[in-house]
């Protein structure tokens, strides 16, 4: 992955909706790539953001209609169908555990709307498909620092909203997961500059099906680590339980780093189907740490990644 060192840019410079709508129509044409030179200046600047990939983003339509968000059902189109009813405002997040300043934070205080930046990240799902998504968000590190983690804190646990009245997948006879959905990171992973709390995509507030109003994005890990609709962040000393690991510990580890050399017990992780392709599109070779090895491989120096999968 190419990471370009460029200064942060302000809110006004984030790809405006008109620009990406324009870009989508251009990209759809046969001469899409040739037309890149004609892109609005704002779109070009956005793709040059620090930490962003320059791979072409997946169409907005697919990013917002092809989702895994089991709180709204297990089908890929269920979240887009059922998440509209979710109340996302007001929203607050509890930060507790081993922090000097625990409390309940209003979302606006946690992620100042004026501080969000655009990050165009690869997303690799454990199921073998991938997207490229222009997120809006803030580094998680800044949020955690404000709560002042205690010296002994080693892990960060996250928790999704439980609200069966608005989340149909949380009631009924087929309960595929235990609620709340929980996830966790090692503190150094959580503090890594690539790790963000996202509140938007494609220059807009997050659609509910993508984890509104605030979700985690950890681009070097399989998608299920990037927990959605977060209501609690807890600093802990011990490794916290994580939902898919509870569901099937043999298949889903705590780390869940994208790794083409460690197969899922039931399928290979060596390649990925790029969402938005045609029937005949070639598959993409999955990269170590989803292409972010240069930034994050150091976090795992000396670890057996087969054992700590």
């Amino acid at each position: 992955m190419h990471v370009r060192e460029k200064p942060k840019f302000g809110e006004s410079e984030i790809t405006p909706k008109s620009a990406w709508l324009d870009r989508r129509s251009l990209m759809r044409g046969a001469a899409g790539l040739a037309a890149v030179g004609l892109l609005p200046a704002t779109a070009r600047r956005a793709s040059a953001a620090r930490y962003s990939t320059d791979a072409p983003p997946t169409a907005y339509e697919y990013v917002t209609t092809y989702n895994n968000f089991y709180e709204f059902g297990t089908g890929k189109s269920d979240p887009a169908k059922h998440a509209g009813q979710l109340t996302t405002s007001p929203w607050s997040v509890v930060i507790d555990g081993m922090v000097a300043r625990p409390g309940t934070y209003a979302l606006e205080d946690l992620v100042g709307p004026r501080t969000v930046e655009e990050r165009i990240y690869r997303l690799r799902c454990v199921e073998g498909w991938s997207m490229v998504i222009p997120w809006l968000g803030v580094p998680l590190a800044g949020v955690l620092k404000r709560a002042e983690p205690a010296p002994g804190a080693k892990y960060v646990a996250f928790e999704t909203l439980v609200r069966p009245a608005e989340m149909p997948g949380q009631s009924g006879i087929f309960q595929v997961l235990d609620w709340p959905y929980v996830e966790g990171l090692r503190l150094d992973e959580a503090m890594h500059p690539l790790t963000i709390l996202a509140t938007g995509l494609y220059g807009e507030p997050l659609p509910n099906q993508n984890g509104a109003p605030v979700r985690l994005v950890v681009p070097w890990k399989y998608g299920y680590k990037s927990i959605k609709s977060i209501v609690r962040i807890t600093l802990t000393e011990k490794q916290p339980p994580t939902t898919w690991n509870i569901q099937n510990p043999r298949e889903y580890g705590f780390y869940s780093n994208v790794n083409p050399e460690v197969d899922h017990p039931r399928w290979s992780q060596a390649t990925e189907r790029v969402i938005g392709g045609s029937l005949l599109s070639p598959q993409r070779d999955t990269e170590m740490f989803n292409g972010y090895a240069g930034e994050v491989a150091g976090l795992y120096a000396g670890m057996d990644l087969r054992k700590f999968h």
Binding site: Y62, G277, S278, L279
Partner: peptide, 9 residues
């Protein structure tokens, strides 16, 4: 191109 996001699957 009308089979959605992941047409092969």
């Amino acid at each position: 191109g009308r089979l959605g996001a992941d047409p092969v699957k």
